Amino acid sequence: MRRLFSGSALALTTVLVCSAAFADAESPTELTRRLLQEAVAEPSNSAKVESLLKVLVETPAGSGRYVVEGDISIAREEIVDYLKSLKNPDIASSRSDELIVNLVGGKFDYWKNPEQRKLTFGFDEKSFPTADNVQFTRAKFRAAADDWIAACPECGITFTEVAENPFFKIKYEPTSDGTIAMSFFPSSPPSDRFLYVYKPFLAQDLQFDPVGVLRHEIGHILGYRHEHIANIPGCATEGTSWKPITPYTANSVMHYFCGGKGSLDLALRDADKRGHRCLYQTGKACPVSN
């Protein structure tokens, strides 16, 4: 996710399992949750913020950017505002529940103009371990992008690979902390316009459909937040501003594998497609069905 998120769970993180020998000890997941809760309670307390930063993944290393909510990246200077947003979330009212779109300044964060929807991308090929890895990722991204395009041909969204000056780049990072991939939101600044794939994405034992992983990340690029954002039990807490535009879909492409919900294929469901068409064709949430 944008700056999100990307930190946490499927989307993309792998499951952390504690050894029985340490059953009474605080697990890494529990430690992170506790430090997050403490920092949210006192976002102006620099000691608590620093304690949280020590357990967050910094990626790329030395960049000053940290993973939150599984696959969203935020800069060090944004962390206090992010924590405040978790304490006092700005959730626009709606009679429906989800597909969820990001909000910036109270407005939907998506590609509003036809020209903006002609997205170009390129590969940082030198960042990948092998040429085969590049080809693998290219094929999976193309399939994922085509699924979003097919969900609304009339929306005018395209993804075109170019050799020079792409709008965003697809880059590999050798991080193996559990994060699988991470992208950005439409409102992200140019410096954040990367779709990162991490070491687990290329692993042969990846449980998730790699095309699905990239479908999820493209969802963020199109402006969508995580489906489980509204405090679904067993899922990560998330902050910043958002608004639901279709009813909650437990197996949405934007739902982490958490809280007993989610899916390994991360496919576009009918509700996802409906919400996507509503937003990109009308600029509004879907009408509420009776």
Rank of each mutant, 00 (worst) to 15 (best):
D97S: 12
A271F: 05
E42D: 03
C235T: 09
D147L: 08
Y256I: 07
S27L: 02
D209P: 08
D270N: 02
G212T: 09
R142K: 15
V68C: 04
D132H: 02
E42K: 10
Q135H: 00
E78M: 07
G275M: 04
P129E: 01
N113C: 10
A21F: 04
A230N: 15
F201D: 13
K54R: 14
S8D: 03
T120P: 10
S85M: 09
T13M: 00
F5A: 03
G219N: 12
T179N: 13
V49M: 05
D265W: 05
N133Y: 03
E77L: 14
F184E: 11
K87S: 10
N165S: 14
R274S: 01
I245H: 03
D265H: 06
T137W: 00
V67K: 06
Q207N: 14
T29D: 11
E50T: 07
A181F: 12
T29Q: 07
Y280K: 00
K54P: 00
K107Q: 10
L16G: 01
I229N: 11
G64A: 11
G7K: 00
G275Y: 02
K140M: 10
R76C: 10
E115Q: 12
F167D: 03
F159M: 04
L268M: 03
A11L: 05
L202A: 08
H220L: 15
L264D: 06
W242I: 08
G122T: 01
R225F: 15
I180T: 15
Y280G: 00
I245T: 14
L36R: 02
A61M: 05
T249L: 07
A144M: 04
H276M: 00
D146A: 05
E173P: 03
F167E: 14
D71W: 09
S183V: 15
R138L: 00
E154V: 00
N165K: 13
K118Q: 12
A23K: 14
Y82I: 05
I221L: 14
R33W: 01
V197D: 04
A181Q: 11
A236M: 12
G70K: 02
D270Q: 07
V211R: 12
A75M: 08
L12Q: 01
G262M: 05
A236I: 08
Y196A: 15
E125K: 06
D90S: 02
L52N: 05
E217A: 10
D132N: 08
A144G: 13
L16H: 02
V55A: 14
E115I: 11
K54Q: 06
P287C: 04
G156T: 12
